[in-house]
Design a protein around this nucleic acid. Structure first.
Lengths: 132, 132
DNA sequence: TAACAGTATGTAATAATATAACATTTATAA
DNA sequence: TTATAAATGTTATATTATTACATACTGTTA
């Protein structure tokens, strides 16, 4: 279960926007959308995003500089993330595959490094774009 | 085997710099370092980087906005990449683990999506930083 | 070799993404 | 209540990346 974090005012506004959008959103597009709610500066957006990422409510899609609501209710914190990204329509979805996450969470090599976190981004064509 | 690409002048200058550095380099740090060789504008750097990524001579570390020389001589193109990143000292190295790359290249789920490419970034503490 | 296509270069301007620094306010808990 | 942490507001600025346009080089093939 996800710990109930009491989101602050700005955090809630920004989380709700991203969550309702159903896809990844970029910081300045978020900013544009919340200006009518009184959030006027980039830093206000980035601060809320940072916190939301920290508590696992959203994830950053690194290859796209965009943020998406966590679609995996069982993921406690933002430690182990995997996404599929369509290179044609830019649709992004979070992969929740227990075998994959177990495999990666347990991955270790001979580097002596202890991995505590990972982010995996798969690219390709989604069903729709493939059939065009 | 890697196809021999004849790098152009700018591509060669920039690849050599990144390769010799032994680690990830950021675009504007590259720019600063090659100004004495006549490369004066960001676009000249980005164009060379784009090409080098395309032909697999370097990879982009998405979470760091940085570029690293491919350390895996057998990787033909930049389709399947995995890195380990130390969150303390920011040391980055490319993981070449046949089991991992096979597992990920063959990964498929029920989304109907065909994955042709992936990028995986592991985070943690490297051996040195762990023992401090 | 001339004509062409594709690739690479040069340059200026600007767009897009993200953070530093500082002042103030609100929430939490001892 | 008082101390502390967390969040907010605001201005300025740093960092990363692209658009647009003009020119030059490289290799092919007619």
């Amino acid at each position: 279960m996800q710990k109930e974090h009491n989101l602050s005012k700005n955090q809630k506004i920004i989380f709700d926007l991203i969550d309702k959008s159903g896809g990844p959103m970029k910081a300045y597009s978020i900013l544009f959308n919340v200006q009518k709610k009184g959030i006027k500066a980039p830093l206000q957006v980035y601060r809320a995003l940072d916190k939301l990422v920290e508590i696992g409510k959203i994830h950053k899609i690194e290859s796209r500089n965009a943020f998406i609501a966590c679609q995996n209710s069982s993921c406690q914190v933002s430690k182990a993330t995997a996404f599929s990204i369509c290179e044609n329509c830019e649709n992004v979805s979070e992969i929740s595959n227990l075998k994959l996450s177990k495999y990666l969470s347990n991955f270790s090599d001979n580097s002596g490094m202890k991995y505590s976190k990972y982010n995996l981004e798969f690219f390709g064509l989604c069903k729709k774009c493939k059939s065009k």
